[in-house]
Structure formats: C-alpha cells, structure tokens
Computed example of a mutant assay.
Amino acid sequence: MTTEWVDHDSESSTGGVEQRDRTLTKLACRSWQDLPTADVVAAVESGELTTANHGTAAGQRTTAATAASAAAVQRQGLAPLSDAVADWSGFGVVIPVLSGSPGAGASLVTAVLSDALSSLRQRVLLVDTAEPARSGLATAAPVEGPAEAGPHESVRVRHSWRDESTVLARLETELPVLTPGMVPPPRFFKPTSGALDATVVDIGHDAWRMAAHPLAGPGAWLRSGSPPVRPVLVCRASRPSLSQAEQVLARLEAWNEAGVITLPIQLVVVGAWSWPAGLAGATGRRVAALLEETVFLPHDSTMAVEGITAEPVPKRVRAAITPLLSRWGLVASSPVTSRRAVRRRNRKESPA
C-alpha cells in the first residue's frame, strides 16, 4: 500500500489541529483494522509531537510508522482480545511489579527483588518495559549490551549484564512515543541462552491506564498461565497512595474474574519501616486483603538522590525483601522470616 502524504504546512491554518488529528487517525488505522484504540491514539500523539517540531509531512510519517510498528508487534504475541493462558515455562518464577500510584517506586522494588535474588545465587532476568527516556532502570547496568533485533525494526530489546547473574532487558525505539502495543511479547525479552530462576518485571507504565486493558502491551506479564505469575503491587504509606492502589485493583478485578490475569498477591510499601499513625480506615477491601503480609522497604537517602544505579541496592534494603522471597520458597528461610517476627520488626499498625 502506498501512503499519500498531505504534504503542506498550510493545513494548520486551513483545518487546524482537529483536521490534522483526523488525517493522522486515518493514517494510523490503515496499518491494521484491529489496531486497539489506545495504540491509534498514541500514534496520533506521536505524529502531533513530530509535527510541532518538524512539520506536517514528518508528523504523518511518524504516525504511520508508529501504528505499523504496534500492529506488527501485536501480531506476534497473544492477541489483546485473546483469553488464552500464557506459557511461562523457561522464565523461572515471574514477578511483575506495578505501581499502585504515580511515583510509588515500582522500579526500586524491581531492582531490590532482582538484587536480593542475585545475591542468593539465583539467575535473574530483569525486564524493563518503560519508555526508554522515562525508565527508572536506564542506568541499572554498568555497561550496555548490544541492541538485538526485536519484533519490528522500530522496536529493539537491549540485553546488558547488571551483575554476573542478572541480565537486564530494556526496550529501545527511535520513535517519539512507545504505544502499549509496541511493547513486545514476553518471549522477546528472554535471553537466547541460559536457564532462569526468576524473571522480575518493571511494568513501567501508568498502572491506572494499563489496567483499563491489561492484555495489551506490558500488561501481558500479568496473564494467567503456568506456572502462575506472582504480581507485586507497590505503594507509599499515605492515604492518597493507598486510595489509588485500591482503584487499580478495582480495575483489574474484572479481568481476574474472567480468568485472564492474576491480581497482585503482595503489597510492598516503599520509604517506611511501618504504617504511620493516622491511616486507620485508609484502605478499601482489595488492598486490605493484602495488608497482613505487607513488606516495608526503608528509606535510603543515597537511593533517593541517585535512583537505581549500576551498584547493588544497599544490603539493608535487600534484607527487607528477603522474608518475602523465603515465604515464596525462592530462597532458604532465614531466622527472622516468621510472620510474627516480621510484624514485630515493622511495628505494624494496620490502616484497614
């Protein structure tokens, strides 16, 4: 198919933004009649951004390229409308990590889980599905590895060694917007050689929007399958964060009831040793069901300033997550992993 570009910048004065959006939408829809609306919208946004910087023709080319990339990638995995279960064999234990609220610290928790497993001699795949420019794991490897061919020429996966037993898999694209549908199916993140004990995934996208249709893009890591995945929900010890986490779970609930995804089974609270006073009644029923086994990650001043670097996360932060890994049977039990000991250490005061 040959695309005819509306190659004139006078469009902005004759038709305005509304007319330009209609043109870009038509271009996006030509790539695939089944392209999800979220990808069409993102492709148009990509074109609008390019138009603002480089003109109408460049914006049209970018919209078409973005939509074509999303369409090509989605054809290579389980369809967004499919209720088929996923085959997680070969990934080890899959632990998707999603934020219950913006800035909750999902990337931090992903790195902590990965480093804790690695320090206990587990072979780990650390997956980052975020837009490259907004990734919390962008500097998590000391040296970047090669960018390997992805499911489409505009989408690549770069594999780098974070440490001697952890491979970091990150997305790369030259397009200005990474649509949900451009996130490759999980198999494209897996290294071509070597067995894995665990795969820890930073979902990397706004969980509220992702939960509207979790079967497209990064939400594919939540798919029900064999062996079952173990999703983790991250929040802060505050009323707003707990409230937003409840809404994310509410959106995901219907998908879980349909049997196509697995709801988060673990709550991790970042930046606190225990629940602060004054949170009584702050949680809804969905978050409340996760409170008993809540894991707290203490504040670390260096990480708060530097973010995730190529250095391992501090030992005391890793130690906070180890009881969870012991409870899941991923590492040997330690003397302080009982529920009573964890509750006593954290001085838990449930906000339910």
Rank of each mutant, 00 (worst) to 15 (best):
T3R: 00
W5K: 01
D9I: 12
D9H: 13
S12Y: 05
T14A: 01
R20K: 05
D21V: 15
R22Q: 13
R22C: 07
T23Q: 07
T23Y: 07
T23M: 03
K26M: 11
A28M: 11
C29G: 07
C29P: 03
R30F: 14
Q33R: 07
D34P: 06
D34Q: 08
L35M: 11
L35R: 10
P36C: 00
T37A: 06
A38K: 02
A38T: 13
V41L: 05
A43D: 15
V44T: 12
S46E: 11
L49F: 12
T50C: 04
A52T: 15
A52W: 10
A52S: 12
N53D: 15
H54G: 04
G55T: 14
A57I: 14
G59I: 09
R61T: 14
T63C: 10
A65K: 04
A65L: 09
A68G: 15
A72R: 10
P80V: 06
L81A: 09
A84I: 14
A84N: 15
A86H: 08
S89I: 11
G90E: 15
G90T: 13
F91H: 04
V93I: 06
V93A: 08
P96G: 00
S99A: 13
S101R: 00
P102D: 08
G105E: 12
V109H: 00
V112W: 07
L113M: 07
R121P: 06
L126W: 06
L126Q: 14
V127C: 08
E131N: 04
P132R: 00
A133C: 08
R134L: 07
L137A: 10
V143L: 05
P146Q: 05
A149F: 05
E153S: 11
R158I: 12
R162N: 12
R162W: 12
R162I: 13
E164A: 01
L168R: 11
A169C: 09
E172R: 01
P185I: 03
G194Q: 09
A195L: 02
A195M: 03
A198S: 10
A198M: 01
T199F: 09
T199H: 04
V200T: 09
V200C: 03
G204R: 01
A207S: 13
W208H: 09
R209K: 04
A216Y: 11
A216V: 15
P218L: 01
V229G: 00
V229L: 00
C235A: 09
S241H: 00
L242K: 00
S243W: 07
Q244H: 08
Q244V: 07
A245F: 10
E253K: 02
A254I: 12
W255P: 07
I261F: 02
L263W: 11
V269K: 00
G271V: 04
A277L: 04
L279C: 10
T283K: 01
R285W: 08
E292W: 08
E293I: 02
P298D: 09
H299E: 14
D300F: 07
T302K: 05
A304C: 06
E306N: 01
T309W: 06
V313W: 05
V313M: 02
K315W: 11
V317S: 05
R318T: 13
P323C: 02
S326D: 11
S326H: 03
R327E: 15
L330T: 09
V331E: 14
A332L: 03
S333L: 05
V336K: 04
S338R: 04
S338A: 03
R340M: 07
A341D: 14
V342M: 00
R344P: 01
R344Q: 12
R345I: 12
K348S: 13
K348T: 15
